[in-house]
Structure formats: structure tokens, C-alpha cells
Design a protein around this nucleic acid. Sequence first.
DNA 1: TTGTTTATTGACTCGTCAATCAACAAAAAC
DNA 2: GTTTTTGTTGATTGACGAGTCAATAAACAA
Lengths: 195, 195
Amino acid sequence: MPKLGMEPIRRSALIKATIAEIGHVGTLEVTVSRIAKRAGMSSALAHHYFGSKESMFLAAMRHVLTLYGAEVRGALAAADSPEGRALAVIRASFSPANFRREVISAWLNFYVLAQTQPKARRLLAVYQRRMVSNLRHALRPLLGAQAGKVAHSIAAMIDGAYLHAALGHDAPDATAAAEQVEEYLTLALSMESRA
Amino acid sequence: MPKLGMEPIRRSALIKATIAEIGHVGTLEVTVSRIAKRAGMSSALAHHYFGSKESMFLAAMRHVLTLYGAEVRGALAAADSPEGRALAVIRASFSPANFRREVISAWLNFYVLAQTQPKARRLLAVYQRRMVSNLRHALRPLLGAQAGKVAHSIAAMIDGAYLHAALGHDAPDATAAAEQVEEYLTLALSMESRA
DNA sequence: TTGTTTATTGACTCGTCAATCAACAAAAAC
DNA sequence: GTTTTTGTTGATTGACGAGTCAATAAACAA
């Protein structure tokens, strides 16, 4: 049966299965066997391609970040004003894709992992820096020297509102969460007159 | 040797050891044996008093929330103005106690647990509601009908800023995080004039 | 004194799981 | 046509861990 060139296919299937499984269990307490079964192969093969469970996790996290990054980039490209760019970053963060059960799980567990895994922490730092950098760049023409500070605040609020929406009592309301942050943005921009 | 009345002492020791161990490992992948050893007893005794690992976790979470709640209540009692009350809630959330390694770990893992454990989720909802309620009550005299909305935003920003501070690239800077939220509060209050 | 409740543990059961390995199969290279 | 590379798995290893249990012992009650 061995068709050649299986490696990328298998890896991709395993990454998707890892995310799905984390979403299903909620924790990182998922077994390689389960992931492999979901991806339609033996656990031995999973080890063959990834070497360890840990590196499967990291690959999965990288994948989530890549998707998110692509979404942000797409939204930024479609924006045509500074304010539009800031809104793009905010809205991309609250897209339906980010509220799928697996993605929420991945993020929460990513935070846990980032405490102790240097690689996970570095990955998270990259994501955070990029988000702040995008926001600062969008806000600079509008807020000048204060752009940096406001960018950090918006970044924090995005993550906080995401957390609240994802873990709130009722079903997550992404739209409401996005509006919360957008209102803050409006507020901050309206202070531009006080200079 | 059996001195009577050991139960509360043992339970308390186990709860503290659970939190310490979670902080040490970073994950909920801690063993009952390790926790028990840290608390100076056999794992069998831990099971005797708590029945299961899960209920140990919940007790530990409840303990963290209790400490945090007490801190907030104390800060609120010392405040004498509406704005002072809002500041009290914010500052209590960024107290040094909340940035101890174990407490950060507990919170992050709490989030993960809240996805799937109904009891954990309920506990988290109680905490979130109380925080919003405290903020709304403080802001009502200053913002009237908009108090609710702003309270939610501040609550989100507190959690987001906490997350960023706890997992940021460098050592956590609680003061900077608190100031971030305080500035948002100031901004929101300064809009009171626009009515 | 005898029986009951509370405290305590070592030993054990039963299960799970990450990682390895030997072996087999097919394509590609030589 | 043989050797090497790539794909694949069942079986196994080795370790660890949650929860149970029987047994021991002190305090207390009758």
C-alpha cells in the first residue's frame, strides 16, 4: 500500500486530529492512540512522524496560530483606513472560527502549556507581539505617541473579552464581545481631541 | 497516635499542597501521591478525606476564590468614594498574591477545567458575576445607565491584562497591568461629561 | 471491658499510556 | 534483481497512577 509522499498528508491529518481531540476532551490529557485513531492510522505511525506527544502539541498550536494569523492578515488587507485596520484586528479575533470548541480549548491549554514549555511560551510571545504591533501600526496615525499604550490595552481587552465570551455562563456571544472592544477603541479615539 | 479532630487540619493541608503542586507542575497532571507527600501524609489518607482527585481540585479552586474574594472585600471596605471602590476592585485583582506562581497556575488550569466540569464552570460564573456586580455598583453613581456596560468591559480588561502580565515575555509587572486598567477607568469616567 | 468511631498506612488491583521494535510491504534506485 | 528508502502496524515494554482494602492503633462510649 505504501504510496510515497505520505508524510505531509499524515502530519496534517495528525495536527487536525490533535486539535479535534483536545477540543473533545477539553484538556491536554489526550492520548496519542486516540489522536492517531481519529486521523486514521496507528499510534506507532504518529510517533514515527512526530517523535513525541509534545511535538504534536506544538505543531497543533502553531497551526492554530497560523490560521489566526492568516485571518488577521486577510482582514487587514481589506481595510483602507487606520481605524479600519484596528477594527480588522479586533473583528478577526472574534471570528466564528475562533469560537469553535476545539479552538477555544486549544487556546486555553496553550496558556497552560506556555507556563512551563519554553517553546510554547515563545510562540505565544510572538503572537502577542504581532497583535500589539498590528494595532500600534493602525493607531499611530490617529494617536501618535499614545498608540503604543492603547495598542497594549486593546490587546489585553481582546484576550479578556475572548475569555469571558468563551467561558461565560451562556453560549458565547462573539459579536457582543467584539462590540465591547470596538467601543473601547471608539472611546480611545475620541480622546484624540484632547491634546 | 490518632489525635481526634484531624479532619479539618488534613483537609486544609491537602488543599494548600494541591495548589502548591499545581504551581510546581503547571498542569493538572499532578498525582495524588505527590500532593499527599507534600502535605505530609499517605495518598490513602488523601483519598479518605476527599474521595477523588477531582474534588481536591475543586476544593483548591474554591480556596483560591475565597482568598481573592476576601482581598476584594477588604479593599472595598477601605474605599470611601465610588471611584475609590472601582479602583479597589482593580487593585485587588493585581495584588502580589495573585501573581504567585501557584495562583497563576491555578487560574489558568481553572479556565481549562471550567470548559468541561460543570462545577468548575459554575464557580467561575459566580466569580465573574461578583466582579461585574462590584464594579457596576461602584460605577452606577458615576455613569448611571452605562455602568453595566462599562463594568463588563473593565472585568474583561482585568482578566486580559492579568493574562498578559502573567504570561508576558518578561517577568510579570502587576503594577503596569493595574495601571492599564485604571487608565481605562479614568477614560470611561471622563466621558460622563458627554451626556 | 468491650465495642465503636476516627485516624492512618502499606500493599495491592486494575487500568492506561508513551514510546519502542521487529517485521512486513511497496516503491525507487542502482 | 537486489538493495535501499519510505510507509505501516501489532505486539510489547516499562512505567506510573487512581482508587480500594485489610489491618493497626488510639480515643471514646457503654
